[in-house]
Design a protein around this nucleic acid. Structure first.
Lengths: 179, 179
DNA sequence: TCTTTCATGTAAATAGTTACATGATTCA
DNA sequence: TGAATCATGTAACTATTTACATGAAAGA
């Protein structure tokens, strides 16, 4: 079985949700996966091309009146199999999440305590904004996708974002008090 | 002021801690920054070269008996200034941390509930191992670097790792119960 | 008229890992 | 004898973003 990168599997997965074109894939990404997976058009279009080349999907161009032509992609059986087999594999290792604030804090001795404090305050504020975004998305899913069988899983991923962000906010507070 | 990437600033910062060669930089990284910043030799050596080219550091080659020659790098005033000015700038935005487990969970509908459960169990276990590593590093810092003025800041970054990892573990538990 | 939305795509640049090459010493 | 540690470095590959190019329609 050929191995693809996770971005390819992400696109493969999105094709199961009814999104069919590069444009709508990007939209769904930005709305629903943005907190743990983010990609640009520069990756989406070449990947869709690759899917067709490797027979994981098929394309057809559809004309729409008043709007540009769009290419609609559909998973093949091989594509669906590839997705499922990836889903069932456990992850190899948790990746290291690079954190610029921690990197700066690590060298905190070369900074004034006021500056460190301001840095943490700024970070905390950004985290709080993020938390609010998560809550907003959650509300939106609960009202617009209440009967969608995917919604359950989407809410699980949001819950993760909320919990870890909250933990980070608490850490900011505690660290600011310790300085 | 020229802008560099964060990896360059990380190396600049490590040069203030007494690590002088590419080899020892890598060692310190692996031991102390590994939970939020990780780089390979393939990045360290070219970056050190760049630092010298841009007059942020100077090199001299020292011979050691019984061991290979080593290059020792030292920050210039310009290098120290560059580091400090970066430290004082607030981060632009919190990066999206890609999470393969969440990506798989997002498409959980195409997987059996047992498989999803196993996936979460596996992730939880990996997180618990990570938490133990953090605790071990913390102990090591408390015993070996008790009077080091940097130690305080190192412990702050570890505390972040512990809190967010713990939150992720709780999420795993809650999600496993919900499935 | 200007901005937004729709829609697809490529080229260049940046970032980063992995694999390789080299070679001495120490320790089991 | 073989592995580990010390030590530096490059080439190839992979992943990804950013900037650009194109162009029509809708709405303010």
């Amino acid at each position: 079985m050929t191995k693809y990168n996770n971005t390819t599997y992400a696109i493969l997965g999105i094709l199961t949700t009814g999104c069919k074109s590069g444009y709508t894939i990007k939209q769904l990404m930005d709305r629903s996966l943005n907190h743990f997976w983010k990609i640009s058009y520069g990756q989406i279009y070449p990947t869709l091309k690759l899917l067709v080349e490797n027979e994981l999907a098929t394309v057809k161009t559809t004309s729409q009146d008043g709007k540009p032509d769009r290419k609609e992609y559909e998973l093949t059986d091989k594509g669906a199999e590839t997705l499922k087999s990836w889903l069932n594999q456990p992850i190899e290792q948790i990746p290291v999440e690079r954190n610029e604030v921690l990197l700066k804090l690590f060298f905190g001795r070369y900074q004034s305590e006021e500056q460190t404090y301001l840095q943490l305050e700024d970070y905390k504020q950004k985290l709080e904004e993020r938390l609010q975004t998560y809550t907003a998305i959650e509300q939106s899913i609960r009202t617009h996708h209440d009967n969608d069988p995917d919604a359950r899983y989407w809410l699980f991923t949001l819950d993760y974002g909320k919990r870890t962000t909250l933990a980070a906010i608490d850490w900011c507070q505690a660290t600011m008090e310790a300085i």
